[in-house]
């Protein structure tokens, strides 16, 4: 049967032909990662449109509650990105954050949240190309994991 006919015969199943796209929330620090993402945009570098960006002044501002709440709200993946260690606009914000994120990631994975839901990166303002690569990597990872089910509140 032709594809067109099939679509008309079984209209309620038409939605299944859509491929699920992960929804990823990205917390980007204003001075480095957000600027890097902006540079990617200006340079017209293509990267997957699955991320929604939340701009924060520094990765150190990020409360682990944000990441946990995002997973609870049903975001399939989380990306947190800040300045490279040593280059933080506020000197040490990202260094404080690094320890917090390490502990958070270890605990979440220990509890059983799939590895790949929480992602962390350092992207500087000049690294537009790198930002797009990071996003591609994260989207691939999360796509392979499927829609978020653990910790999601119905």
């Amino acid at each position: 049967m032709s594809l067109v006919k099939k679509a008309f015969e079984t209209p309620e199943k038409a939605g299944e032909r859509e491929i699920w796209e992960p929804r990823i929330i990205a917390f980007l620090c204003n001075w480095c990662s957000y600027a890097g993402a902006d540079l990617a945009g200006i340079s017209r570098i293509q990267y997957p449109p699955n991320i929604r960006v939340v701009r924060v002044p520094c990765s150190g501002r990020i409360n682990p509650y944000f990441l946990i709440k995002s997973l609870q709200r049903g975001w399939d993946g989380v990306l947190v990105s800040g300045c490279h260690p040593g280059d933080c606009h506020y000197v040490s914000g990202n260094l404080v954050a690094r320890r917090k994120f390490a502990v958070l990631k270890d605990i979440m994975e220990y509890i059983g949240v799939e590895e790949g839901r929480l992602n962390f990166s350092w992207v500087s303002a000049a690294e537009g190309e790198r930002f797009s690569r990071v996003v591609k990597k994260v989207v691939e990872k999360v796509k392979a994991l499927g829609p978020a089910k653990r910790l999601v509140k119905r």
């Binding site: 260690p85 690094r98 390490a102 502990v103 992602n119 962390f120 990071v134 994260v138």
Partner: peptide, 16 residues
């Protein structure tokens, strides 16, 4: 307390 301080050379194997 360890989460109240930091070192420049902290491990970051989890970073992409």
């Amino acid at each position: 307390p360890p989460l109240g301080t930091f070192k420049l050379e902290d491990a970051q194997e989890f970073v992409i």
